[in-house]
Amino acid sequence: MNAPDRFELFVIPEGKRKVEMEEDTKIPNAATFKIEREDHTLANMLRMQLLKDPRVLFAGYKIPHPLEHNFVLKIQTAPDTTPENALGDAITELIQEIGQLKNKFEMDVIRQRAFEDAKASHGAGMDGDDMALDPHRAGLDVDF
């Protein structure tokens, strides 16, 4: 089979860098970033985060070829910042958002387990459907 080895999807080849930047000489405050060993998942998240920034005038990406494991991200900013700064800020904000999402998910899992434990321990005198509709009756202090 002609499929590439799976490690090629995430191991950066010798001599290549994870991120390479090239300034655009035709457009002011614009740069192109080539990011190795990533795909649409990260590219789209970065693009959307960049577009939330009012200093960013344009952000877009493309995958040069489906068998190449990289993407090209183009950023144009207002004169008061640089594409490098905008990308760095977007990465920092994404890390914070993902951390908040992780914490919320973990809290929801803990609440669900507590609800299921309370349902199991108090289930003798309660109708299971009533408890599913009202977690307060199951002895849980939850906010929805």
Results as ranks from 00 to 15, higher is better:
102 K>S: 14
102 K>A: 13
102 K>D: 14
102 K>N: 13
102 K>W: 07
103 N>A: 15
103 N>W: 01
103 N>H: 08
104 K>H: 06
104 K>T: 13
104 K>N: 13
104 K>M: 07
104 K>F: 04
104 K>Q: 10
104 K>R: 07
104 K>C: 10
105 F>K: 09
105 F>A: 12
105 F>H: 13
106 E>L: 05
106 E>W: 01
106 E>G: 04
106 E>K: 03
106 E>Y: 02
106 E>F: 02
107 M>D: 15
107 M>L: 15
107 M>E: 15
107 M>S: 15
108 D>T: 05
108 D>V: 00
109 V>S: 03
109 V>R: 00
109 V>G: 03
109 V>H: 00
110 I>A: 13
110 I>G: 07
111 R>L: 06
111 R>M: 06
111 R>Q: 07
111 R>E: 11
112 Q>G: 10
112 Q>R: 05
112 Q>Y: 04
112 Q>W: 01
113 R>C: 07
113 R>A: 11
113 R>H: 06
113 R>F: 04
113 R>M: 08
113 R>D: 09
114 A>C: 05
114 A>I: 01
114 A>T: 05
114 A>Y: 00
115 F>M: 02
116 E>V: 02
116 E>N: 07
117 D>Y: 02
117 D>N: 09
117 D>A: 08
118 A>F: 00
118 A>I: 00
118 A>Q: 04
118 A>C: 07
119 K>N: 08
119 K>P: 07
120 A>W: 00
120 A>Q: 09
120 A>I: 06
121 S>N: 07
121 S>E: 12
121 S>I: 03
121 S>T: 11
122 H>F: 06
122 H>I: 09
122 H>R: 10
123 G>P: 05
123 G>Y: 00
123 G>K: 00
124 A>H: 11
124 A>D: 15
124 A>K: 11
125 G>M: 04
125 G>F: 03
125 G>S: 07
126 M>P: 10
126 M>A: 14
126 M>V: 12
127 D>K: 05
127 D>W: 04
127 D>H: 10
128 G>W: 08
128 G>T: 13
129 D>V: 08
129 D>Y: 11
129 D>Q: 14
129 D>F: 08
129 D>S: 14
129 D>C: 06
130 D>T: 14
130 D>K: 08
130 D>M: 12
130 D>S: 13
131 M>P: 05
131 M>V: 11
132 A>N: 14
132 A>C: 11
132 A>I: 10
132 A>V: 09
132 A>Y: 12
133 L>A: 15
133 L>D: 15
134 D>L: 02
134 D>A: 07
135 P>Y: 00
135 P>E: 01
135 P>A: 03
135 P>Q: 01
135 P>V: 01
136 H>E: 14
136 H>D: 13
136 H>A: 13
136 H>T: 14
